[in-house]
Amino acid sequence: MARTISYREAINEALAQEMERDPRVIVMGEDNAGGAGSPGEDDAWGGVLGVTKGLYHRFPGRVLDTPISESAFIGAAIGAATRGMRPVAELMFIDFMGVCFDQIFNQAAKFRYMFGGRAITPVTVRTMYGAGLRAAAQHSQSLYPIFTHIPGLKVVLPSSPYEAKGLMIQSIRDDDPVIFCEHKMLYDTVGEVPEESYAIPFGEAGIVREGGDVTVVAFGRMVGMAEQAAGQLAGDGIECEVIDPRTTSPLDTETILESVESTGRLVVVDEATPRCNMATDVCALVAQEAFGALRAPVQMVTAPHAPVPFSDALEDLYIPDPQRIANAVKSVAGWKR
């Protein structure tokens, strides 16, 4: 039976159910228990925002606190994966990829290819991304396009509690390295989630809303923004088809192209900065594969080409919002040659 739980609880439940099912699953990261070696509580934090809370006592010896040394413990998760474990390592903020990227993109991502198909590296790296928490330039980025660029990695962007649980379970069961990107502003959002375990396959987009006028492809937190925009636009008689690709690698190109073939209009909403991001990628795809169907120029709604600012006065402008999305949709819906 489904019940309403938060995005945070959905991820925690996925971890717990997979740890219950498979003794090879271990969890590690900075303060994933929280309190290692301290005189107080030994499960003090459960991750900096509480996602892994409670697992430490439920699964003794399988939730590991780490020193703040991302290269070592992300690399350790990768090494353990080559030996048959199913580690879930937390890279607390995606911004910290800079201090461990080699282990992810030169090691984990390439083992299978470099070793001629004779390696599997079933590691999951959970990481928090996105703006909105007034966390400023080094704790707020949407760097998933960089991971998406790397062959050998799979990149997951759950947009809701239902997606978060099913995609996390798939990430753990998947035999390839997965970068699981959690938007920090979504942790407290709630939705219906089955109690049972379930895996959402990678590379299959969700069609969040059907509509025949404009295709809106949105990623991660932007899915909800696009849905809000689509709700407003329906009142103006513009029906949006909102597509949530769920994973940027693999990318469900078929669903996007099929939709654009029928609407002839495309808006892509991506919180990442605009050079070489998912918006440019989807627009290039459509320009190449569905040029004949286009009835208006494509539109991209993204952050500006700038670091994430601190002041709320600026950060609120930085993040794409329903109004900007609605304006973009209107501009393509009303476009005349």
Partner: peptide, 27 residues
């Protein structure tokens, strides 16, 4: 490399191996 032999690969990255060994040792 030959993972069946426990050989995790020569490594083109200087310093690439030690973190991985933390992981195999953990396993």
């Amino acid at each position: 490399a030959d993972l069946t032999k426990g050989m995790l690969g020569a490594n083109g990255i200087v310093g690439g191996g030690p973190p991985l060994i933390c992981g195999t040792a953990l396993a």
